[in-house]
């Protein structure tokens, strides 16, 4: 089933010279985990902002085309309406704290209060997502006193509590240390278990290879590739466009190890299997 349909989406920020997104058309299936990659200025963040309706409702500029989420056209719906279908988490964990609540527990309630969720339901959801995001220990702390990883998990939990169908994460780990990054990716893996459609922008290609079933490669506002993860990472022209490949793919490429589909392995386990198949079990001993 199609969850998101994008037709000829173009967008130019006011005062900008070039279009940030240029004629993008694609479809996203329900339950897909899409990894979005691309160099700087590729339009990744603009793409995310369009999905939640911040473009064109919050950022004014030249908007063309349409985004349909189920039956909801983002152009004709308010951000508040869209936010119940599509959740957004972005880079800076600090700025995603509302600043109006004194405890983690209350912070989780912020979005629910705004959307008029009944109190009993609110408590059920808060307890659930506190658990799911491992925030029970800090639930009475001031949100501003959390570590980066905890703050980002709080941001994810606050959005999860709104029960969106689609979850957009715009480089959620770019400002975190390795430990915080690990925490957030663990949290992201739980999103998959909740059967959400996830769109994750990240430069952590190894992680994307583990989680995403499809990769959307953007460059200069256009789509370079939108295909299965292994197919995209097997392309030979990624480096030319300023992108790397997952470390396992790079090793496989050096060793010219391809599978039956003529693709390089992208995950640790796949590479190991192929190495064993080629060099025998005692490899490295």
């Amino acid at each position: 089933m199609k969850e998101i349909i994008i037709n000829n989406l173009s967008y130019k920020y006011s005062l900008a010279e070039n279009k940030a997104l240029n004629n993008i058309s694609l479809e996203i299936e329900k339950g897909d985990f899409i990894g979005v990659i691309g160099p700087n200025k590729a339009g990744k963040s603009t793409f995310c902002k369009s999905l939640v309706g911040l473009i064109p409702h919050f950022y004014k500029g030249e908007f063309e085309g349409e985004i349909l989420i189920d039956d909801l056209n983002t152009l004709n719906s308010s951000i508040a309406e869209i936010s119940l279908k599509v959740g957004l988490v972005f880079q800076d964990p600090f700025n995603q704290i509302s600043g109006a609540k004194l405890s983690v527990y209350d912070e989780l309630a912020f979005g629910l209060e705004n959307n008029g969720v009944e109190r009993e339901e609110m408590i059920t959801r808060i307890d659930k997502y506190l658990d799911l995001m491992d925030l029970n220990e800090v639930k009475d702390n001031n949100p501003f006193e959390l570590s980066g990883g905890q703050m980002q998990r709080l941001a994810i939990a606050s959005i999860m509590a709104l029960k969106p169908d689609v979850f957009v994460l715009d480089e959620p780990t770019s400002q975190l240390d390795p430990q915080g990054t690990e925490e957030v990716f663990k949290a992201v893996s739980r999103l998959r278990e909740e059967n959400l459609t996830v769109i994750l922008v990240s430069q952590k290609l190894n992680k994307l290879a583990d989680y995403a079933n499809k990769i959307l490669f953007l460059n200069q506002g256009g789509i370079v590739a939108y295909d299965d993860t292994a197919a995209v990472f097997s392309r030979n022209d990624l480096e030319q466009m300023g992108m790397g490949v997952p470390i396992y793919t790079e090793i496989a490429r050096e060793l010219e190890l391809k599978n039956e589909k003529d693709q390089y392995p992208i995950r640790n386990s796949e590479l190991k299997e192929m190495l064993v198949a080629k060099y025998g079990k005692n490899i490295g001993k």
Binding site: V52, L54, F58, S78, I79, A80, E81, S83, L84, G87, L88, S98, D106, A109, F110, G111, L112, E113, N114, N115, G116, V117, E118, R119, M122, I123, I126, S158, I159, L162
Partner: peptide
């Protein structure tokens, strides 16, 4: 905004 700050619905309280 993405947490319904401008939602037209009546607010509830935790």
């Amino acid at each position: 905004e993405v947490r319904g700050f401008s939602a037209a619905t009546k607010k509830t309280f935790l």
